[in-house]
Design a protein around this nucleic acid. Structure first.
Lengths: 169, 169
DNA sequence: CAGGTATTTCATTTTTTATTGAAGCGCTTG
DNA sequence: CAAGCGCTTCAATAAAAAATGAAATACCTG
């Protein structure tokens, strides 16, 4: 019931050892800041490429789908990690890696970390109101802990501008 | 074909608004450092609890399974986020939240971030060797980029001790 | 502006990750 | 030292996240 041609093993074009190493490095790095594997793969490939690559080069080399390539590039563009360069006589967009590594860290801090800290501080406001209507005994526990959490979060948030400056340098 | 007793709606014990707010706050916060929802739920509940809770209190209040509670507490113990306190006349372990919030950040930096930076620097060493066997043209591209990445990673790593000191204060 | 080619979108499928709960371990205690 | 309770483990299941690829869209270009 199965048609399985023995000669059909057309996987992805093989990647060089350098490319594999770069791809693995960036998969790990990007996962840390919440970006998916395919995004890391694409950036890793572009990072060690000496020429700009079109989307279907990327698909072919990495063996990923059209959709994954398109969406991955969209994410990378949105954080400024790749830019497209004009290639005379070719209608396709060609991409190169932006080497300003600090951009990823900056995007992560501004788009993930900062909003989450802000949201947490908002919630603490709500919780303070809620605690104010509690019995004295439980209220004092809650108040103390909320105060402590608030201080820590404010302190952390106050460090972000410094951190950003350091990373961008 | 369905037996649906109208009176059967025995879900989890209801949580107070304060508890819900705390749980949501910590789910979000912990997700950021790669910890799962159930871990955030447990810590969030303990954070606003004025008394120590046993594992089955936690299960019942949150409506999570035995396994999830056990594993979640294991993770929280391992990062020092909860400690168990002795309750006379009760064989069960009882847990309270450790309020030293910096512990989570510290654990994250030391157990996730630092090792990943180290691994990345290792990989760069490998890549430098690989690049040295390439054609001059491609080699210079690779060398320049690797140098740049290495500097940025080293710089980031050099900041960690400072960051840790700041968070712990 | 017709006939493509490149790209995006998104419902479906696949893969990965988290949760469940029953089996079993080990400690306590009567 | 047996019986039971509390807890952990882990194979099975469920839920969430990511990838696929066909259809729709945008965009050249002759």
């Amino acid at each position: 019931m199965q048609v399985a041609p023995a000669t059909l093993e057309i996987k992805a074009e093989s990647l060089s050892a350098l490319e594999v190493e770069s791809i693995e490095l960036f998969i790990g790095f990007f996962k840390l800041i919440g970006l998916q594997k395919s995004v890391g793969e694409i950036y890793g490939l572009l990072f060690v490429s000496s020429r700009a690559l079109a989307m279907d080069d990327i698909m072919t080399r990495l063996g990923i789908s059209l959709g994954a390539a398109s969406q991955g590039l969209k994410v990378l563009r949105s954080v400024g990690a790749v830019k497209s360069v004009y290639m005379p006589g070719d209608r396709r967009d060609h991409y190169v890696a932006d080497l300003e590594l600090s951009k990823f860290a900056t995007a992560f801090i501004q788009e993930e970390l900062k909003p989450r800290l802000d949201r947490a501080l908002e919630r603490i406001g709500t919780m303070e109101s809620l605690a104010s209507g509690m019995a004295p005994e439980e209220r004092s526990t809650a108040d103390e802990r909320l105060e402590r959490l608030k201080h820590w979060l404010e302190r952390s948030e106050s460090m972000l501008p410094w951190l950003l400056k350091f990373l961008v340098k």
